[in-house]
Every structure is written in C-alpha cells, then in structure tokens.
Amino acid sequence: MEPKKLIVTASPHLVDNSSTRGLMLHVVIALCPALIASALLFGIRALVVVAVSVAACVGFEALWCVLRKQPLSTGDLSAVVTGIILAFNLPATIPLWTILVGAFIAIVIVKQLFGGLGMNFANPALVGRIALFLGFSARMTAYGYPARTTVDAFASATPLAAGVPGLQALPSLLLGTHGGMLGETCAAALILGGVYLIATRTISAAIPVTYLATVAVMSLLCGQDVVLQLFSGGLLLGAFFMATDYVTSPFTLKGKIVFGIGLGLITSVIRFYSNMSEGVSFALLLMNLLVPYINDLTRQKPLGAPKKTRGKGGAAK
C-alpha cells in the first residue's frame, strides 16, 4: 500500500448531528402555532409586527458583524428566535418604529455588547420587552383585540386584570380570543409549541413544569384563580420559550428546578401583591441574574467525589 497523507486529530472522531442552527430551528418551529394563532386573532398586523421584529433583530446582528469585521453569525438563527419572541411580547397595535428600539436593545446592547451568543447575562428579547414596557408604557398596554371575538368578556384589560372566573373563561384563554400581547394569548398554541420542544429534546421539561406548578400552588395558597393565573398573561410564553433559553438558565436538573420554583414565586408575588398585573418579565430578569449563583450551588456531584464537596465549594473560588 502506497503511503498516503492521513488526517490525524485528537479523539473523539465522531460527533452527533445536532447543531446550534438545528436547535434554533426547532424553537422557530415550536413558535409557529402561536404565530399562526396571532395572525388569526389579531389579523395581518400581527404578522407585520413579527416580520419587522425578526428583520430588525437579524439586521442589527448582521450590521454588528459587518462593523466589527466578524464572520456573519446570523446563520445560527438565534436572532430570528429573539425577533419572534420579542414580537410575541408586543401588542399588535405597536408603532413599528418602537420595535426597532426593542430589537436594538435586545441584539446590540444585551447580546452583542456582552460578547454575542452564549455570553448575554439576560434573555435579549426579555430585556427588549422590559425596556419598551418602561419606556412606552401607554403604547405597550394598548392591547390589540382579536378581530373575530366570540367571547366579549374583556373590554379593555387582559384576563389577569379583568377578574373573570378562570374556568368560565377557559375556552377563551385556550383559544386566545382576548386582549393581550400578540403571541401570548393563545394558550393552546403555546402549549403545543412547548410540547414539541420537550418531545424533540430541545428543552428539558424541568423549568416549565416547576415554574407552572409553583404558580399553581401559590395561586391556591393565596386564594387566586389557578386557571386564570396559569393560562393568561405571559406565563406560558415565558415558561416554555423564555425561561428555557439555554444561555440564561441553569445547567443541571437541580439548578433548573430551583430556577423554575424561583420564577414561580417571584411571578406570583408580583402578580398578587404589586400594582402590576403581570410579573413574568421581572421574575425572568431577576432569575436570569441569579443563574451564575444557581449554577455554582447546584453543580452535579462527580462519580467518586468525596462526600463533602460543598461548603468550602462555590464560595471559595
């Protein structure tokens, strides 16, 4: 056999066929039912908002890469996911230029200034939403109303603020035929997307399950309407699509459970006891900031590690 130049690399020589792009694509697919629902509920304007948001996020990311002379990173689709989720957190009536502000904050300030994909301290879409909410409160709460409402239970408020018994409103909550942010209202579509993400192992069920369960338990304890609390507001979108963001959620199962419970507690406290009717965004932001500490305290125990590893552990370094 004649000598041939062979490739020599360190082991392993085999990798699976997963990719960042593939995972993001799963998230985009999972967001599609809610996207379709939003178009049906809020009309073509919802699609325009989503399209502008996605274009702005991808555009800002591409612009950043060009200006910084970095290889174009838009192919990983993470900016597309940020764009869709940001749009889902906006009312369908929002002026389009406002979306550009949100996208700039999400992509440039929160994501790229901190080092790009994987380095952001909080969920970019989430911070974009919070910034818009604080800066443009009136426009952000001018909720759109479903074009063909069959249940006209809510005149101007989201179900959370309206105080209609949850069980009675359940069909409306599931179908999303009520006022709210454009991607938040249709619970059935969000749950479908969440189940898809879990079934494809894109996300672990731990965070959404513990988050929702904690909110349910807290609602019971505090005498709130469990159904209304679970199926309205930004909870489902937050639990399935924002709390499970890889970069800003803990690594281990233990950490994810702590994270989910923390989210549920903060969301409930804000919803029940503050003058805001919605608490998901701030709960997420607060818990995002705690993730490095949760990771330190919930690290898994290596095989054969001595019994006492904690205590002198996390803090020492």
Partner: peptide, 16 residues
C-alpha cells in the same frame, strides 16, 4: 461555533 451554554456536555458526562 460559540458555546450556547445548553449544558448537554454536563448531562452527558458519565463522571458527572
């Protein structure tokens, strides 16, 4: 590509 901190390596590691 950049690490997306998905934690799959942590879940996979047989040694924990």
């Amino acid at each position: 590509g950049p690490c997306i901190r998905c934690g799959r390596c942590i879940e996979a590691c047989p040694m924990g």
